[in-house]
């Protein structure tokens, strides 16, 4: 599923500027979590992270895990420091007004599977 499709499915707003390349990135799985160690334990690299936390260390967790796209739920938006950090690390940030359950459900229904436990 492309990032462009994900944005449409979630009615998401784009926080970091996205070029064509980023919009056409193929995302194969997603992981919904508010616990960073769970992300680090269960993630698959290149998956989408759906979370309600917006602090800078969430961006760093994504970087460490090799996650390149984050969707913040409930309309949350990170502060400018986190946005700059994400841009520097080439991590795309989106925000949706949906809750975590609905956002995950919509993507799953559209065919995006969960991360595989490795």
């Amino acid at each position: 599923m492309t990032l462009k499709e994900i944005i449409e499915i979630l009615d998401a707003t784009v926080i970091t500027p996205l070029g064509d390349e980023a919009l056409n990135v193929d995302i194969r799985s997603a992981c919904s979590a508010d616990l960073m160690s769970a992300v680090l334990y269960y993630h698959t690299p290149d998956s989408l992270l759906i979370t309600g936390l917006t602090q800078a260390h969430v961006i760093r967790t994504a970087e460490i895990a090799g996650i390149k796209t984050i969707v913040f739920v409930l309309g949350k938006k990170p502060d400018i420091y986190s946005i700059e950090l994400a841009e520097e690390k080439k991590i795309s940030l989106l925000s949706t007004s949906l809750c975590m359950y609905t956002a995950s459900g919509r993507l799953f229904q559209a065919g995006l599977p969960g991360c595989l436990y490795k």
């Binding site: 616990l35 960073m36 160690s37 680090l40 334990y41 979370t51 602090q55």
Partner: peptide, 15 residues
């Protein structure tokens, strides 16, 4: 509240 405290850190290091 900041997203830590799952009790997975040490197991993650070992893994």
């Amino acid at each position: 509240e900041m997203g830590w405290g799952a009790g997975m850190g040490l197991p993650n290091m070992k893994k």
